[in-house]
Design a protein around this nucleic acid. Structure first.
Lengths: 138, 138
DNA sequence: ATTAATTTTGCAACAGCGTTGCAAATGAAT
DNA sequence: ATTCATTTGCAACGCTGTTGCAAAATTAAT
């Protein structure tokens, strides 16, 4: 477990620190997307708010995690799949937000349908955010 | 123009105030989605920040405008189409965010494709957010 | 294994967004 | 015109996210 996390950091030329190990392990353990507040709450050791922000930003820059746009306007983070590389994210899956428990899921298996935009618009990325009730809350 | 705006307010049992008239006119005039900051900047008369927040919230509650989830985590607002009624939004269209100029468009004509989620999840609403470059910036 | 160079962390301070309570001002109704 | 309900502005607050800088930890090199 810890080995996997260390490998990820090394692959991305990041030095190994308690903070990064801890946060990355949280993502590994969680099937859900996490907010900054979640991470602050779930961390065993206490890390400074600023450190957590900077770590999340670093992970996003490296393509280790990605952000998810949410309707309630809080930033959620989730692990990227192997296809993600620095700068270019391929998180072409659907995100599901449960209105009951507030959990955000990455539905990795469900690919994003093609969306037709006017032909004078150029598409870079498409996000699909589904709101509803998850399997645990119904 | 002003008549239309007054009608909308009356239909929603809202009293007619300068603030509401002004903000609603901004939305009528704009083909783009507006942020709180946009509204504060565009208003001819100066309205208090708090008043603008409350007005936007009121309009959202009444189904006059809807919010748009954005990748950069700022709340954008846009006019709802006629199908929207109090509490239940049918903004089943695609939102397009231009990475160059930051403009958010409602692509009203383009309907949202059906998304297959696991069968133990219940879908209430689907948001599609397309990032790219708009016709003016390419 | 020590030391030097680089990176990361924690603290303090700050700006921006959004909310709440309350008193004054405005709009609606008689 | 007066009354009642609603809306507005102000002050204050909490939360989120950022920046600068010095201390601590990590990496690299001897």
């Amino acid at each position: 477990m810890k080995d996997v996390v260390i490998d990820i950091l090394k692959h991305n030329q990041l030095s190994i620190t308690d903070n990064r190990l801890g946060i990355l392990e949280l993502f590994q353990k969680s099937s859900k997307a996490l907010s900054h507040a979640d991470i602050e709450r779930l961390s065993e050791k206490h890390f400074d708010r600023v450190t957590i922000y900077r770590t999340l930003q670093t992970f996003v820059d490296k393509g280790i995690i990605h952000t998810i746009p949410t309707a309630d306007n809080s930033i959620m983070y989730a692990l990227c799949k192997e296809a993600c590389s620095e700068g270019h994210h391929h998180d072409d899956h659907v995100h599901f937000l449960c209105g009951q428990c507030g959990t955000t899921y990455c539905l990795d298996n469900i690919s994003i349908p093609e969306v037709n935009v006017p032909k004078d618009f150029i598409v870079h990325q498409t996000n699909v955010l589904v709101n509803g009730v998850c399997k645990n809350c119904r």
